[in-house]
Design a binder for these strands. Structure first.
Length: 247
DNA sequence: CATTGTGCACGTCAAGCGGG
DNA sequence: CCCGCTTGACGTGCACAATG
């Protein structure tokens, strides 16, 4: 196991321990967490067979009973690990509450040139909240290519078109023409590889979007902090003006 | 200089969701 | 209901900095 791997295991297991505590507080059965799925995944993916800390701990603790309960644990863990709303959904919900907050657009825009959005992103002060609480010109939240301005890898430029087949993927004959088990197996393998390749690209794209989202939030925080500071100063000024002079 | 810690990007799995 | 997309979670490897 790599050093980094060890660190991540620790980090992961801290979170898992927290979840166990939470589930105990809820009165639900403590989850033995990652062990079953990790093992499951490693078996599937053929990755190294070194057990995780959680696996080791669980093996040590439960040993005999673990086997019969592993399936149950797996499902319980899945329940506990139920997904939070996606960041995009959060932002979109936010945008419906606050009229001025733009939504993260679906794909398309990123293929169609980058420069306009860079300009928008580079001017975070375009955010302005009126005295009535409305936001004006919050262009900085629009999905943009901050990475281009900050020197990050412009991954969107390398990005393979989502609709196009990746290089190296050879289309097999139509399923109707498959007969032998071997052909079926090949077809299954081909489908799997295609799926993995697509998901690989999707994951990259997803991460890129998430980074954008985080940067948007950060710039928003910066803007709101400035705004807050100004308002506090204004308040102090008004207090000075309108407070009764005692002298 | 070896070891350890940290951050980041990546590949994969699986759950959830929306569209057809 | 099925399929494809999106994304959280997990595990891994690599690069680099800090430390003894």
């Amino acid at each position: 196991m790599s050093k980094c791997g060890r660190k991540k295991y620790i980090k992961t297991n801290l979170r898992q321990m927290t979840m166990e505590i939470d589930s105990q507080q809820d009165g639900s059965i403590p989850d033995s967490v990652a062990e079953s799925e990790s093992a499951h995944m490693q078996m599937q993916t053929g990755q190294n067979s070194i057990p995780t800390l959680a696996q080791v701990a669980t093996i040590a603790e439960t040993d005999e009973s673990a086997e019969s309960e592993s399936v149950i644990d797996f499902h319980k863990r899945r329940e506990i690990l139920s997904r939070r709303p996606s960041y995009r959904k959060i932002l979109n919900e936010l945008s419906s509450d606050v009229p001025g907050v733009p939504k993260i657009e679906e794909e398309k825009s990123e293929e169609e040139g980058t420069s306009p959005n860079i300009a928008a992103m580079a001017v975070p002060t375009s955010i302005y909240q009126t005295s009535t609480g409305q936001y004006n010109e919050e262009t900085e939240l629009a999905p943009s290519h901050i990475s281009a301005t900050t020197g990050d890898m412009p991954t969107y430029q390398i990005r393979a078109p989502t609709t196009a087949l990746p290089q190296g993927v050879v289309m097999a004959a139509s399923p109707g023409s498959l007969h032998s088990p071997q052909q079926l197996a090949e077809e299954a393998t081909r489908k799997r590889e295609l799926r993995l390749m697509k998901n690989r690209e999707a994951a990259k794209e997803c991460r890129r979007r998430k980074k954008e989202y985080v940067k948007c939030l950060e710039s928003r925080v910066a803007v709101l902090e400035v705004q807050n500071k100004k308002l506090i100063e204004e308040l102090e000024t008004l207090k000075d003006i309108y407070s009764p002079k005692t002298d």
